[in-house]
Amino acid sequence: MLEVQDVVTAYGKIEALKGVTLRVGEGQITCLLGPNGAGKTTLMLTITGILKPRRGSVRFHDKDITGQAPGGIVRAGIALVPENRLVFPEMTVAENLRAGAYSRTGSAASEIANDMEAMYNRFPRLRERSTQMAGTLSGGEQQMLSVARALMARPKLLLMDEPSLGLAPMIVEEIFQIVRDLHKDGTSIFLVEQNAHMALQVAHHFYLLEQGRVTFDGTPGEMAEDEVIQRAYLGTRQTA
C-alpha cells in the first residue's frame, strides 16, 4: 500500500537517506530496525511530508504523494505517532484528540465525538484524564495519547516511530498489545523499533536500515536466522 522508491533525503550536504527503497503491505505490520542515526526518523518524516526528499518517490495506494504538504498526506490516510510522543503539553487530553481530528474537515462534529468516545474506550486512562493537561501525564500515558491522537485522523496506515522508547517494560508490553489490537481492527502499521525481541512477536516483515541504506529485507524467520542481526539486535541472551 506504501511504496518508497530510491528516496534520498538530506540535511544540507549530509544525506541521511541514501536511496531507500521499501514497501509496506496492506493489512500487515512492517517493522523497520536500525541503530541510532541510521535515518529511521528521517524516513518517517519524509513519508509524512515534514521533510522533502531530494530524490525518489513515495507512493500510497498507487498515488504519488512525494513532496506533498503534511496536511495532504494525513488526509490521504497516513498518520505518524512521532518519536518522543510530542503531545501538546498545555492542551487537555480531549483537546489533543480534537487536534488529531483537525484534518477531518468533512466529518460531522458528532462523528468526531464518537471517535473520541472510541479512543476513551480503547484507552480508559485517557478518559480518566480527559480534562488534564497532557504535559502532566506519565510517559506511558503520553504515548497512549500520542497513538490516540494519530488514530483520530482515521488513518489507513499508521506509522509509529519508536513507541516503546524510554518506557517501563510493563508499559512496553501494553504498547505492543495496542499494536496487535490495531492490526486486528484492520489498520496497517509501519513500526520503527529498536526492541527487536518485541518486534519479532508482532511484525510480518522486517527491514534493517543502516547509515541511510536498507541492508536487510525479510520475514521474521529469515531475520532470526540472519547472523548479523543475531549479533547486533537479538544478542545471545533472551531479554524479553
Partner: peptide, 10 residues
C-alpha cells in the same frame, strides 16, 4: 506548543 506534531495533525 509543538509545531511538528501540529503539522502531523494536518
Amino acid at each position: 506548543q509543538q509545531p511538528m506534531a501540529a503539522q502531523l495533525c494536518g
